[in-house]
Design a protein around this nucleic acid. Structure first.
Lengths: 212, 212, 212, 212
DNA sequence: ACGTCCGGGACATCCCGTTACT
DNA sequence: AGTAACGGGATGTCCCGGACGT
């Protein structure tokens, strides 16, 4: 049980349980006892791997949230033939996903609201996460520009901020509403928004006659 | 000292201190002792006015947050000649406001992220708040339709959800970033978005040539 | 049980139990649980009266140790007809006292050795205690000078420091030895020492022929 | 790296770090983790050399404190031409030494106060140390008797106890006061004390006219 | 001879809410 | 309406020592 090879596994179990608890209750109310119980280890093990609850929280942001962000939002638009459609598609998929209490909501947004004003280390790490997110969206928009689906004069950084903000906001609303409808509204809204960013000629006439 | 009528003042001091602490630390980590200390009363007084910490939190949502929402986001668009411009104006004003740690961020969003999955009573109250917000935006959009600034076939409820989501998201981003830039991006984004909602003829040609 | 009148009694029970535990184990190893158990109250009560374990420790020094010092060492020499004899008498009495684990040893010295280098607040308080002790001895020596039992040219402050140091040291030795013999040796030693402080003529010839 | 012969060096590093920590914080609050950190080894190494924290403490007393006692207090009076002057000289030297937080104070006294009533093994070891100390002083007094500087009828064991007690007490006071003055007072006091132990004729007339 | 991982348990602190009292 | 004393319990942290591997 105490073989050195188990070390990494223990660490990951703790990260997983930590992420789960932080996501369910928030970081501050998250109980160390619950986390170690869920991970199936003792507090001695936790404090061997992490210097403090804060350090565990930081590691959750740096490793778990980062990986989740990439998996769920960045990878789908990374190599898609049409990055803008892929973006909208991700949102639509999220809106139809299981409405379980965990699948819904945005862990990054949760932590951001709770910890930004309380702990500078968290704030910086979450900031970095948002920037990674925006960077991914920026790349998607730039590829859209190359495909002539987005006007060249669009401030892609600003647009990316708006897109990420509306996504985070919709995920938050969905969590409170307990259903995916806000994400659907967000997908529709972003579709309209991107429409306004298209070159003149490519604005589809059909869109204006569809009920949205 | 115990003049009659002090009761209401005590209650409001408690609500104020409660709002302040909840906004600073979150509801769960907020300490009753700190709240009563800030309000300048003792715990007995608090528990005379509120049955529990939870009841105080509910009252903060129902009274303080509701009033703040109206003041900051609903009233400006209520009787404005051009409700859509008033909406964008509010966002722009928020983006330029003092970047103090309290002025920034959205108390509703904070509580929503923290408490939605934890306490059903909070969730419902915050839901009601969001619905009031959306209702106000819906009325603005409907008046926009009457002014022929918004197409008749637009699903105003869905649009309102999108607008509120992007606002809440941008306020959250601004809190994490510690500056109002995301709100600026949101204002710009919403401007573009509303543009796509306008009737064909009224789409300003100048907008498409402006750097945004 | 929760009447306001009980407040002082609870506080004193805590001080008593705190003194007891600090004296038995030392301040740092003293357990809050043991203290409250011995006092028959709960931790809530303790932290209502004292902000921290440190604050309790400070109060023990300021109140309990101070009172004990006065009772055991200062009052006996305060109004004695012959202050020097009273001083020696106190030491002799201590050397014959019950050799229980508590009666022996010097609580002040205990705390001094443990905490002087660790906590500045303790150091200052213990310093003040020692100074009170020396002040009492100084007054005794000055009265000895007026009674022509001590030479006028003796540096009474220095002598008082030496006397207090030898007392504290002997009490410490007695604690380690688990018997009062070191105090007897101290009484004998101080007798000799004071002899050397007497005016020429008053040096008793008999003393030099006694086995000491 | 694991050259043979490193074992002893590791042991001594642990003893050194153990002594340092015990002297700084006391034995009970001393942290094994801090000790091994300071020694630059890991806990595995410590528990290979010592069965427990207690065993390390015992070894510190038996080896480090014993050596320090000999070096600082016993050797100077062992072969001195005039052992009594050498004794006083040692005290005076200590009173003028660097007033660093470590140079001052008496490690034996520290441990004695903390552990005598708590751990019988410590008590016995410290007792043995004190007895070694007294034995050294006894030999010095006996040589003083042979040099006719001390009366033959003096109880040298009792006198040695008094001298050691006053030394330990003065060292303790010096630690609390954070300066060497108590040691100066002790040197002066012991000078007077030894004066009273001299044979009649050898009592220097000059001493009684000096301001002391 | 010594490093790593981790178990079991104690520690000081804080917190919410109640009771007796004014 | 408001206060002070206090109960019962949970929290994050740390700590000693042992099991295991090299």
């Amino acid at each position: 049980m105490k073989t050195p090879g188990n070390s990494d596994r223990t660490r990951e179990r703790l990260l997983g349980a930590g992420f789960h608890e932080i996501n369910r209750r928030g970081f501050q109310p998250a109980s160390i006892d619950t986390i170690v119980g869920e991970a199936g280890v003792t507090k001695g093990a936790l404090y061997h791997h992490f210097a403090s609850k804060q350090a565990l929280g930081y590691a959750v942001v740096d490793e778990v949230l980062q990986a989740g962000l990439y998996q769920r939002w960045l990878r789908p638009i990374e190599r898609a033939a049409d990055p803008l459609d892929a973006l909208i598609g991700s949102v639509r998929k999220a809106s139809q996903g299981k409405v379980g209490p965990i699948d819904i909501g945005c862990p990054i947004n949760n932590l951001a609201q709770e910890m930004s004003a309380v702990d500078e280390g968290f704030r910086q790490r979450i900031c970095a996460l948002y920037q990674r997110w925006e960077a991914g969206v920026i790349r998607a928009l730039e590829r859209g520009q190359m495909q002539a689906r987005v006007r060249r004069d669009v401030d892609v950084a600003e647009a990316a901020t708006f897109i990420v903000a509306s996504l985070a906001g919709a995920l938050g609303l969905a969590k409170t509403r307990k259903n995916g409808a806000p994400l659907g509204a967000c997908a529709a809204g972003l579709t309209h928004y991107l429409e306004a960013l298209r070159p003149e000629g490519r604005r589809p006439a059909s869109a204006s006659s569809r009920k949205v």
